[in-house]
Amino acid sequence: MPILSIDFLINGLASGAALALLCLGLTLTYMTTRVPNFAHATIAVVGAVVTLLLLDWVYIGLRGGAVYYTLYIVAPILSALIAGLLALTIYIAILRPLSKKGIGIIGLMIATFALDIIINNILTLILHLTPSKYIGKLIGASVKGYGVLVYIPILDVNIYLSRLLLPIIAVILTISLHLYMTRTKFGIAMRASIENPQLAKALGINVDLVYAISWFLSGSLAGLAGSFLAFEFPGINPAIAYLYIVSIFAGSILGGLSSMYGALAGGLVVGVSEVLIPVMIQNIYYTITGSIIDIIRYQKFISLLIIIIVLLVAPQGLAGVSWRNLLARVVRVG
């Protein structure tokens, strides 16, 4: 038994890519409006549910057909759009008015906590009451899903197409977001508003618009990540968001909650570790003792450990570490 197989690596990468996008969104709204959004994972599930409903609606037994493949483009875009609009609505209709009334950070946080539970329950209701055409029921585990498995001859593995696509899309998104933030006037204005809203306002930048856009972006990134989840799992239980939010916070805290690149790195590290570390431990245990321990269901513990370690050792996260000094020291020692 090898320590790691190629499909586990791809799974890890997909999980890391999804989490990177989610951490990026959470960090973005935290940097602009200073609210830790406890509803972020549920917004991702909104994306998943939109895709699931779409798949269930148009699926016509053509798994793998041309019509079906176009869904891999249409569904994520639609999910991202709807989740983005939802996040925007949350900000404009609830958080901004609350903040204008002078509600402090704890109050805003509790508002997102309440929104999380409201949206999650609405999703549960929708999934329960919508009869599924093909997969029995839309909530919880059902036997067959809508995902397409792709056979990769060189590696001799079958992989869900969505898992292959997700990391690629995450990379494309990261690059385009980077270009947007550094090359366009409005992108630069966003960074300016994040750093110094007073000065930005004085220079005529519409800071309110920047905040609104950050919520829309944050929501659509979450919706996109969630959409790919729906291709893999036939039935979705919205309650997974209650655990998943911990991983998102872990990645964001590791990233430092103060830099977009930190968030991407933090999410990637947490997502990959959650998949690979339990498998590695399992394999090492197997090679030593010859028996199997079932620890994969505890994988989410890694997130908690990461939160604890980061907060105790370097509460500023990756973004707070002075990489140049560290590198200089390493080079000097080397």
């Binding site: 630069i188 960074r191 300016a192 750093e195 110094n196 007073q198 000065l199 930005a200």
Partner: peptide, 11 residues
């Protein structure tokens, strides 16, 4: 706080 420290001079 009269300049954006995280932005380049040009930005």
């Amino acid at each position: 706080n009269n300049v954006f420290t995280n932005l380049s001079v040009w930005e």
